[in-house]
């Protein structure tokens, strides 16, 4: 008994699959090797889906611009910001972040000499591939470089 769905799926058979493909077709035996090959241009990978303008990805922190006002700590719903009293800067744990960008909204930023407007210390980047085995890995903690050097 032919139904409307049957015509629908026969039409879909002729179209291109809608699925976004994985970067490579099969899981590689060695990921680092694959990355090296991609960098050398030996292997082509399917690029990730582009994100639109204004996308809220991983939070980027610029300690140079941070004035230590602690407003971001006040509004952060997930308590992802930690105050580093020794440096009067903040430390941000991406694994706790819920990407609401409230901290970006409140950040007053700092004006360097010669600049017309203050630039915010916090901004949303377009990076969204954040999977990691360790929630405290370097990629998932944004902090001033001195904090790491001094081990605070």
């Amino acid at each position: 008994m032919p139904t409307k769905v049957m015509f629908l799926i026969l039409k879909q058979l002729l179209e291109k699959p809608f699925t976004n493909p994985f970067p490579v077709k099969h899981a590689p035996k060695n990921v680092t090797e694959l990355i090296e090959k991609v960098q050398k241009g030996e292997v082509q990978i399917n690029p990730p889906v582009p994100v639109p303008e204004g996308f809220r990805g991983k939070l980027h922190y610029d300690p140079e611009r941070c004035i230590g006002c602690r407003l971001c700590i006040m509004v952060c719903p997930a308590d992802a910001m930690e105050w580093v009293p020794e440096l009067k800067k903040i430390r941000h744990y991406v694994s706790r972040c819920m990407f609401c960008a409230l901290c970006v909204d409140v950040c007053p930023g700092k004006k360097f000499p010669g600049e017309e407007k203050a630039v915010k210390a916090l901004s949303m980047s377009e990076e969204f591939l954040l999977a990691d085995y360790d929630k405290y890995s370097d990629n998932l903690i944004e902090e001033p470089p001195e904090a790491k050097e001094k081990g605070i």
Binding site: L13, P17, T19
Partner: peptide
């Protein structure tokens, strides 16, 4: 084929 009929790979 079933996957292609439903727009999957």
């Amino acid at each position: 084929i079933s996957a292609r009929l439903t727009s999957r790979i």
